[in-house]
Design a binder for these strands. Structure first.
Lengths: 337, 337
DNA sequence: TTGAAAGCGGTACCAC
DNA sequence: GTGGTACCGCTTTCAA
């Protein structure tokens, strides 16, 4: 059995209260006493039971993170930022993969609540009324990472998707492209606002998005590959394609390659996110960079700050918009001719 | 304040013992009583405090996972497998990024111990004597994922790296390659055993690994890129390159491309791991597949089974070797001429 | 400066 | 079947 605080107290000839004081370096303990206690701690190899402490303190110093799937390359970076920030502030992180499945989400919310995590970082495509309800029932501080809720109630940290997408499109237009296809995912916050952004830029330059050139895929490389293959069956081809995620851009590039079309000589491709591998593959992918690490980090920081606050409601509707940045690499070039 | 078990008991006109019984659906409770209690639970929105339960049960149903860096594409899949298995068995997972920094690892071990996780899943390149000591002090069941300890004391799940690497090399040799370079990382378990495997196959076919063709990099794409650039300055070039990870293979391919060398026409490249993106990029990467998801899953399962055991020591030295599999794609082909 | 003791929110043994 | 109650291991008044 592990030694308890009582063992340490006995060993040092003091009360448990005193041991507790030196462990938490609280109030003044006589130097001599402190020494004795520390010696006892060392000798017994005492490790305080955080469960017991959390029980009385009502603070577990643990955060819950629920996201769709850690194996989607977008998330590991976010989670890394998150965990780094949490760790630096003395928090740990419980990771939950929801697969965007509401039932699973609810299930996770419940255990997290039961395990008394101090707060929750949530990431998902869409925040529905059901989510809002669930969060309310949770009675736990929640911050949204890389998404936001339609009513703007929950604090969140993200980029300006619409603006960023518009700038990605501007890049293509600036290169001289006029016939441009887009491949987007289908959720309201990332998908639709990016699509809207693409449209904004097009419109601004007197261009339009042909019906046949607005492709929809499931945020996966495979689906993007498929829709692009379909696209290639129709003529004329676009001279550039904007994908709403790098993963999808990879699928697009694969389809082009397999269709005998060169990037960027025949068709330019721009992605979104700037995942690590974007610069590693060839042709290196031009991408609208989203500061994923920072999104995670800031989300954790926001949550932790919120926990320290007397008045957590002061964080209601707080919205942290992080800067995006165009990273030009090899996959985009002026159209031929 | 959250309602407690006492509130529920009062509300239902029973004792806390009875409430506890219905919550844990233990021993027999009269149907009528059960109903009343359940109603009370519902009405009050009662959520049991898992901290309190864990305190007395000495089981937190939480697992610790410490790995170098979740943003390395190898880990998300492992973690996904792990978390899925844990979730299915009623466990949660605390994620820790150690950056392979011993001080950080020790720090994590301590909090995890204090938070009374039931067990630990550990992944790292090298298990040193210090690690073994730390684990012993931890007094917690530990299972190693994708690695093993030199003394074979800790249970682990991994592939046969040496054999798998040998087969990867056989593939190249079978294609007709004779002048082959390898790029490996530097840790004993994955790095050296894969290097050894490459050598085994070469030797078996009367071939040797020239000094100039045994490259060493830090398991990153960037480093692999650099060493490959260096390699390209010397002639004659190898006709094939085996990389000990897909990430490194990506770096190798990038360097080849930038050096004007085509894959697989001029040089073949084979990776190791078969990360998700291996099949997405072009040329699609031939790779020795490691069942990352299953490694995580089986590691979690092994740990959980170990926790259920009366005699945890029966798991000492248990070693689960999962099958590897060659996945041939586009990046390997017979040498020219 | 230090100690006694009342919780924190459950569980589980022992009676009835 | 159900209730009383002694813990689990720690924190935190309140006194001394």
């Amino acid at each position: 059995m592990q030694p308890t605080i009582a063992d340490v107290a006995r060993h040092a000839g003091v009360s448990t209260a005193t041991v507790s004081r030196v462990i938490n370096s609280q109030s003044v303990v006589a130097p001599a006493t402190r020494e004795r206690v520390q010696a006892a701690v060392r000798e017994l190899g005492y490790q305080p039971n955080a469960l017991a402490a959390s029980l009385v303190r009502r603070r577990s110093h643990t955060l819950g993170v629920v996201l769709p799937d850690i194996s989607n390359p977008f998330f590991p970076e976010v989670v890394r930022g998150l965990e780094d920030a949490a760790h630096a502030s003395g928090y740990n992180v419980i990771l939950c993969n929801s697969d965007l499945d509401t039932a699973k989400e609810i299930e996770y919310f419940e255990v997290l609540r039961q395990k008394r995590v101090d707060g929750l970082i949530y990431h998902s495509g869409t925040i529905t009324a059901d989510h809002l309800d669930a969060f309310r029932r949770l009675k736990l501080p929640v911050v949204l990472a890389a998404t936001h809720d339609p009513r703007g109630e929950l604090p969140c940290v993200l980029v300006d998707n619409r603006q960023a997408a518009a700038e990605a499109m501007e890049h293509l237009i600036g290169l001289g492209h006029g016939r441009i296809a887009v491949v987007t995912g289908s959720d309201p916050v990332s998908g639709e606002s990016r699509l809207q952004g693409y449209r904004d830029a097009l419109t601004r330059h007197g261009l339009t998005l042909d019906d046949g050139l607005a492709l929809q895929a499931q945020w996966t490389a495979d689906e993007a590959y498929q829709v692009t293959r379909e696209l290639l069956k129709r003529r004329p081809l676009p001279t550039a394609i904007a994908a709403a995620s790098d993963l999808m851009a990879l699928g697009v590039m694969g389809a082009l390659r397999d269709g005998g079309i060169r990037v960027p000589e025949d068709v330019s491709v721009i992605g979104f996110d700037n995942i690590r591998l974007a610069g590693t593959i060839r042709p290196a992918l031009t991408s609208m960079s989203q500061p994923m690490y920072d999104i995670g980090k800031e989300a954790a920081l926001l949550l932790i700050r919120c926990l320290a606050e007397e008045e957590p409601d002061s964080f209601r509707g707080r919205r942290l918009v992080l800067p995006h940045r165009l990273v030009v690499r090899e996959s985009t070039a002026p159209p031929r001719g």
